[in-house]
Write a protein that binds this DNA or RNA. Structure first.
Lengths: 184, 184
DNA sequence: TGTACATCAGTGAACGCGCGTTCACTGATGTAC
DNA sequence: TGTACATCAGTGAACGCGCGTTCACTGATGTAC
């Protein structure tokens, strides 16, 4: 005899989605499946998110917000920012997977656009310390972009199983960062 | 009045799949849709590929084989190998997308495993020229892996629309490679 | 303290759809003699 | 040159399934008076 009102169904649906995606990929998400996971009628999710893309929009927005916090906590250091990116991807594989498949969600959602823009800024800002002194702004942008690509590529390849690092992935990422950028 | 026998339906189904994936993503592939694209009954694809995963296995294998050829043509040069990787991803986005989603296909297929192993070897081999003289083999592996991650990340971020390079993506990738690895 | 009412959250039945897969079949092709 | 036969490629009808979405509804909660 579960109570008619659920408590925090919205949050619990998102958590169920995260678990399903981490286990079986974003394609495995169905509103009916999530409803069943939460012990609720299959029409309940639509009440909170409108439609399936709405649910994934909420999930992606949540991901960009958390990623922004993680990057900000790195304090603008170039390598640490990249490692925070990798750590986020490893700790939140479901968010990471959805965030970079904009066809799954409402990519023009206001909150999402705001959160995504913040992560871009933080990634760009971290390169100030990394490019050689007196570098042009174009050069700085290239360093920032290269760092992002390196860490994003590493996280993606680990996530899809193309790479299986021994031990802590973040430690491997640190070595890769040094191998590419030296001591910057 | 199309002829009963089709000519090369297998090849044409794969081409239809490539087009559909490039346009609307791997999730948009359906055997019935591809059959319709080829003007053939909806049960025909199963005759050639057994099932949907079989079709995508063939597509991924084809991709790894072509990628292997492209990498080999770079002649073992570190930067050129990476750029060949990016060029392949840009020219064959559908193959690229499927290749790195092993949940879509039969990942233990023999021909696929062989073709995939070859690309790994070629990526690893290109780092011999890139690591400083007298580097340990571990160090060389790190350089190879970092190069792969950088180019894979760049290709992925371009593909998903997170990055929109001005002009030729390969030219941008070259600048990123230099920004990270210097003149290696 | 009690009552009326508005609002919100979740229900459950129904809809139509597109899908992968199966299967007995038929048309076309090639080969042996 | 003709005939029988095996093989292969594609057909079309049928199956069962799970899905997203809609909609009138009901149970629960909170607020105004």
């Amino acid at each position: 005899m579960p109570p008619y009102h659920h408590g925090d169904l919205r949050r619990e649906l998102l958590e169920a989605a995260v678990e399903a995606i981490a286990d079986r990929g974003a394609a495995a998400v169905t509103l009916r499946g999530l409803a069943a996971d939460c012990g609720v009628s299959h029409a309940a999710p639509a009440h909170h998110f409108g439609d399936k893309a709405g649910l994934l929009t909420a999930l992606a927005t949540d991901g960009f917000e958390r990623l922004g916090e993680a990057l900000a906590a790195a304090g603008g250091d170039f390598l640490e920012t990249g490692l925070a990116y990798v750590r986020f991807a490893c700790d939140h594989p479901a968010h990471f997977e959805v965030m970079f498949q904009p066809s799954l969600y409402h990519a023009d959602d206001e909150a999402l656009v705001t959160a995504r823009a913040r992560t871009s800024e933080l990634l760009g800002a971290s390169s100030r310390a990394a490019a050689p002194l007196g570098s042009s702004s174009g050069r700085r942008r290239e360093v920032a972009l290269a760092g992002w690509c390196l860490m994003h590529g590493f996280a993606s390849l680990v996530r899809t199983g193309a790479i299986t690092p021994e031990g802590d992935p973040v430690a491997t990422a640190r070595r890769l960062g040094r191998a590419a950028f030296g001591s910057r």
